[in-house]
Simulated assay, not measured.
Amino acid sequence: MDIYEEKIKSYMRNNEIKGEHMVFESSCHSVEEAAISANISIDDIVKNICMINEDGELIVAIVKGEDRASTTRVGKALGITRPRIATEEEVREKTGYVCGGVPSFGYKAIYLIDSKVMEREIVYTGGGSESSLIKISTDILKEINNGQVTRIRK
């Protein structure tokens, strides 16, 4: 297990978060790879699009695997100037995780959850590394990241 996987597992344990952390031999970097590795549908996967507002704060837009996040909708939802997509370096710096493995919780950010995500009872999100996922209930996810549910997909 790598340091990123251990970091999110510790966070889950210390905060008594009910979810299942899974590590695979194969890559989960892309939505398609994650679905194959976990033997699940693309519909079950969420991705975390990291954005930066004009104050340099991290915004995480959580959308279904096949959807794209709209920076315009995110800006409108928060009543702010349209944010920009974070660079890989900013993602690592602000989340503590590498792109392709970023969880939907566990670090300081403003979390927005697309309404389509909440139609699922259970989702799979990044597990800290490019070869791990976390299976978690959407209700728990919303609670632990204090997520605002709104339409943010394109």
Rank of each mutant, 00 (worst) to 15 (best):
N48Q: 12
A61V: 05
I62N: 03
S70N: 13
A77S: 11
I59P: 00
N53R: 07
G65V: 00
K76F: 09
G56C: 02
T71F: 07
I62G: 04
E57V: 14
E66V: 15
V74P: 01
M51H: 14
G75R: 04
G65M: 04
R68E: 15
D67T: 06
A77H: 11
K47I: 02
G75S: 04
V74T: 09
D55G: 13
T71M: 05
G75C: 06
A77W: 13
A77E: 12
N53V: 05
A61Y: 09
R73H: 09
G75Q: 09
I59D: 00
V74F: 00
G56V: 03
E54S: 07
D55E: 13
K47W: 01
R73M: 10
G75M: 01
K76L: 07
I62P: 09
K76M: 09
C50Y: 12
M51Q: 14
V63A: 09
K64C: 15
E66P: 15
A77D: 09
G56M: 02
E66G: 15
V74R: 04
N53E: 09
C50K: 10
V63G: 02
C50R: 09
V60F: 03
V60M: 06
I49N: 02
E54T: 05
R73W: 04
A77P: 10
D55K: 15
A69H: 04
V63T: 12
M51S: 14
D55T: 13
G65K: 02
V74Q: 02
I62Q: 05
D55I: 10
E66T: 15
K76Y: 13
A69P: 08
R73P: 12
E54Q: 08
G75K: 08
I49P: 03
A61T: 04
E54G: 02
N48S: 11
E57L: 10
I62D: 01
I49A: 03
I62K: 00
E54P: 12
R73V: 14
K47M: 01
D55Q: 13
L58V: 08
I49Q: 01
S70C: 07
E54C: 10
V63P: 03
K47G: 05
I59E: 00
I49F: 07
G75E: 06
V60C: 07
G75H: 07
E54M: 10
L58F: 13
D67Y: 07
I52H: 03
R68S: 06
M51F: 08
A61P: 00
E54Y: 10
V63K: 14
I49C: 04
V60Q: 05
I49S: 05
L58G: 03
G65R: 01
C50G: 13
E54I: 12
D55M: 14
I52F: 03
G75F: 01
G65H: 04
V60R: 05
N53M: 09
I52G: 07
D67I: 08
I62M: 02
E54L: 15
A77R: 11
G56W: 00
K47F: 01
N53F: 08
L58W: 11
E66A: 13
A61F: 08
N48A: 11
I49W: 02
V74G: 05
D67F: 13
I62F: 10
